[in-house]
Design a protein around this nucleic acid. Sequence first.
DNA 1: TATGAATGAGTATTCATTCAT
DNA 2: CATGAATGAATACTCATTCAT
Lengths: 201, 201, 201, 201
Amino acid sequence: MPKIVDHDRYRKELLQGSLDLFAERGYGSITMRQIAKGLGVSTGTLYHYFPSKESIFMQLVQELCEQDISSFFAQAPEAHTLEERLQAVMAFVVQNAQFYCQQLVLWVDFFQQTSPSDEGEIHFLRQVWDRTRGTLADYLQLTDPALVDFIVVFIDGLILQHIYSRVYEQGSKDTAWLHQQSQLMIRMILHHEQNFPQPQT
Amino acid sequence: MPKIVDHDRYRKELLQGSLDLFAERGYGSITMRQIAKGLGVSTGTLYHYFPSKESIFMQLVQELCEQDISSFFAQAPEAHTLEERLQAVMAFVVQNAQFYCQQLVLWVDFFQQTSPSDEGEIHFLRQVWDRTRGTLADYLQLTDPALVDFIVVFIDGLILQHIYSRVYEQGSKDTAWLHQQSQLMIRMILHHEQNFPQPQT
Amino acid sequence: MPKIVDHDRYRKELLQGSLDLFAERGYGSITMRQIAKGLGVSTGTLYHYFPSKESIFMQLVQELCEQDISSFFAQAPEAHTLEERLQAVMAFVVQNAQFYCQQLVLWVDFFQQTSPSDEGEIHFLRQVWDRTRGTLADYLQLTDPALVDFIVVFIDGLILQHIYSRVYEQGSKDTAWLHQQSQLMIRMILHHEQNFPQPQT
Amino acid sequence: MPKIVDHDRYRKELLQGSLDLFAERGYGSITMRQIAKGLGVSTGTLYHYFPSKESIFMQLVQELCEQDISSFFAQAPEAHTLEERLQAVMAFVVQNAQFYCQQLVLWVDFFQQTSPSDEGEIHFLRQVWDRTRGTLADYLQLTDPALVDFIVVFIDGLILQHIYSRVYEQGSKDTAWLHQQSQLMIRMILHHEQNFPQPQT
DNA sequence: TATGAATGAGTATTCATTCAT
DNA sequence: CATGAATGAATACTCATTCAT
């Protein structure tokens, strides 16, 4: 009778735990020993669950993708106006800024580590993004793809600045700043909608 | 191989050449041998000009910062309306998207490699950014810092999406897309200005 | 999997099964996991029957020694002339060539793994060999030790060439070749006996 | 100006030095650290000259093959009778027994490490052996291939016994024994030739 | 008894760095 | 100045062995 462990469940726990580590030091700079130590296991155990460092990273990227927005729409509030819906989305982003920062950093790493020939991995990411964009468009009830792209671009930029904000000692670009910028963006979208209303579906 | 007598000038050439290499593989993943090979010199030569791998990277980051917008304002067109100025800025960004992609990737790497205790390095970056923001505000003649931040956020998001666009095989997020999003942003800013005009200085 | 109650009997079965594995990959190159897998058991089980990898190997070597010629003389035909007896011996060798190949390989490995200080192990082997040589001399009724040595040398050389014969694609050094060489050797021994007859005991 | 080293020459020196090490401990059991230490260099240097452990081993095997009998025929004495030529060959073998022991051990290892699919390596060995056998036949002026094979088999067996002789503490199977067995073999060959003379070419 | 998860020292290999030429 | 050979600590990964179940 073997030691009873839910292999797959434990693997995902390790994956979850390694997110912080990869995000903080980067794929190329973190070592397996550091990961093992950070997770509180031995290197041997790590290799019992993952065949290689690359595999941990790739599985982590995939795991993250699956959590992405599903968690938002599980708690998304009913909202009748575009403004309310935008507020809900941005509130969610601001609230999970920390998480998105890590995801962003991981993706940049991912693109450095991946050669264009790794079609499998890249194709997977593409699907996730397309789906995310679609879900967002549906929730916001926006039909203009360019407008959805605009929102995505803005969110990405916001997250990136949040990463950079580590530079500003007293955190002048903290949650308040994220909120302020979000409001600015929402106002702009609303004005834009007023002037160039969406065709009704 | 031209005989370069000016030690410092050669150092900057090497720095310039190493940008592609660091951007493509990441600080932690690239090796000194790969850098040397990519630059067409021996590792010995590399160490003749730089004391360490970290030093190359840090000098590169600084070097990039100095080129930043100075090159833009050296060629910035006279522009009397806000729209013209925004168009000029965004045209410049789109035109140099490739370069900004590399810079973005380098910065993300930089934040992973840097501990908050490296005050020197971080303080330096902060100054550069503040200066950049200031110069941008001056050129656009915008007094609301939130609005300048908004533009910077948008540009960052745009560049990030451009990096991600490697995923889309036929490059559906190419220069045309950058241009489209830029126009959308400019329109929004202009509408916003109409409704909430800047206090005149 | 039959339930084997006899601990010792099962241990010998495992030993028997591990012969192929050690012979094919070598003591230093095979892993406990490979052995376990090859035997169809878990590593835990392996360690239940043997205290260490080295122990499996050493027990295997000893086990092989005990099977050595006992199995031959259990089936050795009555033979009145030297020629008949030589034919019987060589027929046995050729028939069991595969087995002797494995044994040879194991011994070479044994000498690499054993330091001269492991007197116990080495002394054991020596006894086995002396006994083997004695039994062979008795059966063949040869009194000249040099002649017995000669036969042993020849047999060893034959087996070694059989191992090497893996090189020759279409197996030109197969059983037929072993037989041919055996006949040549037997003829030589017989001629030699004619010219230098053994003193009768 | 690089450090001046005859790369290829030094590589062969290292190869030469690693023979003892591989022969004593076996391919699978020796470590790169041990090899490096045994050669008096660092592991880094080892990898500067060889891409992998396997490569050292394979190059060593090839290197040994090339030295094989060429060194004998470089010093082979003129000899008019078959006996003289046999004496010369066996004297050479006995004199270089140590070397042939190492070679034998290496080859056994080689066959364990090599899969039948490594055609390149195996084909190479085959050629060397065929050439060796041919050269030996020419020197001895023996036209019967079976007889040449017999001699080769005997030599191999002799060397193998010499390896085993480590078991016998006081070296009762030393050079004297090798000589005695050689004489026995030579006498047998000569008698055989008397009774079954070679067809004259 | 049997299993296979867990361990951490050890393995092959790499890499930043040094230094003789 | 420039080279690339040399170094050895560090890296990704493996393996004999242990032990909870």
